[in-house]
Design a protein around this nucleic acid. Sequence first.
DNA 1: GAAATATTGTCTATATTTTGTCTAGTTTAT
DNA 2: ATAAACTAGACAAAATATAGACAATATTTC
Lengths: 315, 315
Amino acid sequence: MSNTLLSINAVVRRTGLSAHVIRIWEKRYDAVEPTRTATNRRLYSDEQVERLMLLREITQAGQSIGYVAKLPTEQLKQLAAASFPSKGTHAPRLSTTATGSSSFFEDCIAAVKALDSRALEKGLKEAETALGAQGMLQRVAAPLAQTIGTLWRDGTITAAHEHFASAVLRTYLAQAARPFASGANEPVLIVATPAGQLHELGALLVAALAANLGWHVTYLGASLPAPEIAGAAKQNRARAVALSLVYPEDDPRMEGELTRLHELLPPEIKLIVGGRAVGAYQETLRKIRALQATDLTHLCSALDELRKPATVAGK
Amino acid sequence: MSNTLLSINAVVRRTGLSAHVIRIWEKRYDAVEPTRTATNRRLYSDEQVERLMLLREITQAGQSIGYVAKLPTEQLKQLAAASFPSKGTHAPRLSTTATGSSSFFEDCIAAVKALDSRALEKGLKEAETALGAQGMLQRVAAPLAQTIGTLWRDGTITAAHEHFASAVLRTYLAQAARPFASGANEPVLIVATPAGQLHELGALLVAALAANLGWHVTYLGASLPAPEIAGAAKQNRARAVALSLVYPEDDPRMEGELTRLHELLPPEIKLIVGGRAVGAYQETLRKIRALQATDLTHLCSALDELRKPATVAGK
DNA sequence: GAAATATTGTCTATATTTTGTCTAGTTTAT
DNA sequence: ATAAACTAGACAAAATATAGACAATATTTC
């Protein structure tokens, strides 16, 4: 531990807070009280810097600075360790005006066309507060993913727009997918896309939905060969594996991949397959006894069904 | 160790400091007190030169010279080990004391091998509070991205691990490394990977770093053709475009893509290229006058440099 | 649901301190 | 003689501190 003191500028570099904010937190809340030089310049110790870092982290997770600034550092550390989930403090209230959802959707599409990440995030956030996490997923995020795919094939939007939308949606979904404080023994769900399936937005939707329903999701991303998926599932003692099939709809290798996965997975690990292309591979899916979910509502019930054994066994 | 004494001119070349500054630091703060020749010329020992380099490094990290100049050299070394220069020109970094950051790194690697997303996030978060956002990026996230690439090619870990790490890192970077509160008129940076470059972790690091330095980042993801990138840049009135080149290092189409991009971009939009493969395309990059950044520290200075014109033009 | 209130980050203006650069005149080295 | 280095002093730009105003969100209240 060095006992050197840092000037406010150095603290700004390290914490990412602006000097304005650091000073105002001191003035209003006595968040940290640095020593001063003979000429009244602030000097911060390492402990104080860490405290500021914790405060930044916690406030960014949604807590109000006025409340946390007074807490002792020890408590801040605990808060920070659990700061991710605090975002969803509001119970998702069901919107009385169902028609509003289309407007959220339109706003998001406009944001995508404008390549405006802030507007897109804002649109999604508004949709989430208005419709709840599930409503947002079903009425805004899922249609958005689908529409963007078709607009891209149309040529209405370019690949840049599609990539952009995927990236923003991806991080938003991943962030929204943290439901409540980590339940210690939630069932584990592996989410991926089989080899050849490059579109990962569907898989992300699944991951977000499952996390919201209380699963511990391990997200593996797109285009993974069957042995890899099976290996990950076994290593993580997963309750189930969820795959997303969107495009292409006529990949000849898919049947092989799917049956291979079935063979490799132990029987107690269930397989759920969703996405627009499930119809195309229906025979194979039936053969390997995979649960099929044509839309997110189906998926909800399937996931809930699979969860039950856990709750029972847990008693 | 040579114990020869150096003239001030030699020290200037070695430290990058001007003779004026060296003398004024001596006069005002007794930063270093060189011996003198019989005719009053300054003569610096190796230790004194090292001390000057440390001072330079530390002041560039935001500390005030008036405070640090009085500290003993031992303490300066500690400070330098925990500092991250981001402004100004570059001097060879001397202290490679790895401090405790390697332990954060090891924790993260272990989490990747265990496919444990919570542990990985926790490791990244702890690194961030201990080292600051920049420290986390430079000392943990960047090495992690690189190591995972090599481990994958080795066969030590599977594609599933790599995908998993990418996904977690992706969302963590996107979420954690944004500025405290988004200022209204920050300069816009487009981040992408040219067509053929499939690894997006490098691009994500760039995006996170830039966001942390106060840019408004529009992230487009991997493998985009030049016209798409240029179109997005123009549409968003970007100040600059940042590309990440990692692998492959010998793509014959890359030269065409890069020159195409140069032609399509208006001259006021600068082009920054970073990543491990920059060396392989150096000729092309020089031709199109792209800024090259071989590591994240370089990138810091390049981005800071490009930010300045805004402040001036904004007046 | 709408209005009032509280919270919170940002911005401006001004005074003070810090810090890099410059000038001028002198001395030393090649 | 020309270039480099020294001292001292002066300046200007940048950084820091304080106080107050302001705008955008939350929260509460009616």
